[in-house]
Amino acid sequence: MSLEEIREAYAECAPWMERLDWLDRRLTGRYRRELFGDASGQVLDVACGTGVNFPYLPSDVEVVGIDISPEMLARAQDRLEGLAVDGTVRRMDAQNLAFDDDSFDTVISSLSTCTFPEPVAALEEMDRVCKPGGQILLFEHGRSDVGPLARFQDWYADAHYATAGCRWNQEPLELVLQSGLSIREAETRALGIVTLVDARPSQESVVDTVRARLSSPEG
């Protein structure tokens, strides 16, 4: 799908995604809490949707949520106003982020690479805007480790993409490796469908990390 087709699709699904927020919390809340609870400093939430990640962030961070869909962002702004987390939302293409290099301490994204027209380009942009010593935290879904379920995903992949704009049989770790990000930890859950990734910027060195820590307020 093109960016405009994706925007139109999410304009239609924004209302029911908001209504099903309770189900999302029940199914994915534990993964978001586990991964995004470690975010710190200035946080960028890429493809933030209705702001479903915001409640799982520590209260002392400052978050910027970006998304291609104005309808999603309107709901994300409403959610943000009801939380203790400071932040804002902006309409933006994840594959062409309007931020300077090394702008954020933490970059997060959830269930997003399956919809990006060029997922590796989006991951490379996350890499670019993350500071040395920072972290890139990804909660993704993809092809199951269980044979029959994986074969069903493959069989229905084209039809699912045509209706939902989602590549549900993608391999998230392959995309992360292609982007050049340095994977610190990666784990699959839920029959291999869920993938949690804790990564670091691709050009980070030990010297960069030490300098970033020495220049931080905590020292």
Rank of each mutant, 00 (worst) to 15 (best):
M1K: 15
L3Y: 14
E5P: 13
E8Y: 09
A9F: 10
P15V: 00
W16L: 08
R19Y: 00
D21S: 13
D24S: 11
L27C: 01
L27E: 00
R32S: 09
R32L: 13
L35M: 05
A39I: 13
G41H: 00
Q42M: 01
D45I: 05
V46H: 07
A47R: 10
A47H: 06
A47Q: 09
G51M: 06
F54V: 07
F54E: 04
F54N: 04
P55I: 02
P55W: 10
Y56W: 09
Y56P: 14
L57Y: 12
S59H: 14
S59Y: 10
D60Y: 11
I66T: 14
I66E: 08
P70E: 02
R75Y: 01
L80H: 05
L80N: 04
E81W: 05
D86W: 07
G87V: 09
T88K: 06
R90M: 11
R91F: 03
N96G: 15
A98N: 12
F99S: 06
D100M: 00
D100Y: 03
D101W: 04
S103V: 00
S103D: 02
F104W: 01
D105S: 03
D105V: 02
T106I: 06
I108E: 09
S109G: 15
T113F: 04
C114N: 05
C114I: 12
E118W: 09
V120N: 07
L123Q: 04
L123D: 02
E125M: 12
D127R: 03
C130D: 13
C130P: 14
K131E: 14
K131P: 05
K131F: 02
Q135C: 07
E140R: 08
G142T: 01
P148Q: 05
R151I: 08
Y156S: 14
G165P: 14
G165T: 11
C166E: 14
R167H: 12
Q170M: 08
E171Y: 05
E171Q: 11
L173H: 02
L175V: 06
V176D: 06
Q178E: 15
S179L: 08
S179F: 05
I183R: 10
I183V: 15
T188G: 01
T188Y: 03
T188W: 03
R189E: 15
L191N: 11
I193V: 15
I193A: 09
I193K: 08
V194C: 12
V194D: 12
A199P: 09
D208G: 07
T209Q: 03
V210Q: 04
A212E: 01
A212D: 01
R213V: 04
R213E: 04
R213I: 03
S215L: 12
P217K: 11
